[in-house]
Design a protein around this nucleic acid. Structure first.
Lengths: 123, 123
DNA sequence: CAGAATCCGTTTAGATACTG
DNA sequence: CAGTATCTAAACGGATTCTG
């Protein structure tokens, strides 16, 4: 016996798109945005500080995507002064847990990955 | 007090790229490929079956990326007959756990997300 | 068998500047 | 303040064809 269990005939029927979703549930910055909202609602300009390397256009895109998928809400306050607040929905909040697990993994294995990458380019 | 804790000044220093990594650690199919290798080494043509919707080029790209980052190994066997086997490294295997958590989340909340998306396009 | 080569269309990101 | 508008560049994904 050279091989163990057979693979399913079509992984898309089995896993897709659910398996893909958490890894591509939006755009490049979605994960970071969600984490920024962990501590409570934030305004656009507040989010721009930690994400200052993301242009406003891209940040807006990201937020729109997350809003569309039900991860965050967008609330406009006219008074006392113009402001827009983004907040996590229960769905968005429920995503924080697997997200944190993935981030913890990354933090722990980041070095190994960099080593592997370096070894690959300069053997 | 309108707001809670302050956000870090630069999320990139704090989290990036580690926070981004698990969500974009390669390409679109990387997660699926890793899951295919969970049960043991597989040959290219074996992987093509469950991933038959991915063209060989893209699958190769994916595998090369995973190899570069130390998630999988690529072994060429000349005898008894030409074959190439891909297998998980310990690093790749360690990724399976957070991956499974994320997939479980997706399976559980997939409906909610679809609902949200539908409600958004057709309110 | 296990890809490589080529071409191509779409999506995504980023820079820059401007506005209700 | 909270974006929008434009433009450009790159990445990504896919179809097709070919090869050691």
């Amino acid at each position: 016996m050279t091989h163990r269990q057979p693979l399913p005939a079509d992984l898309f029927d089995e896993l897709c798109p659910s398996a893909l979703l958490p890894f591509r549930f939006g755009d490049k910055w979605a994960a970071l945005v969600l984490r920024c909202l962990e501590g409570g609602p934030r305004r656009f300009s507040e989010l721009r500080v930690p994400l200052h390397r993301v242009t406003p256009k891209v940040l807006t895109q990201s937020l729109r995507g997350l809003e569309r998928d039900g991860f965050v809400t967008r609330t406009v306050h006219a008074a006392p002064r113009p402001a827009v607040e983004y907040a996590l929905t229960p769905l968005g909040r429920s995503m924080l847990e697997p997200l944190a697990a993935a981030c913890a993994w990354a933090a722990e294995h980041w070095d190994e990955l960099l080593d592997a990458r370096e070894r690959h380019t300069a053997p």
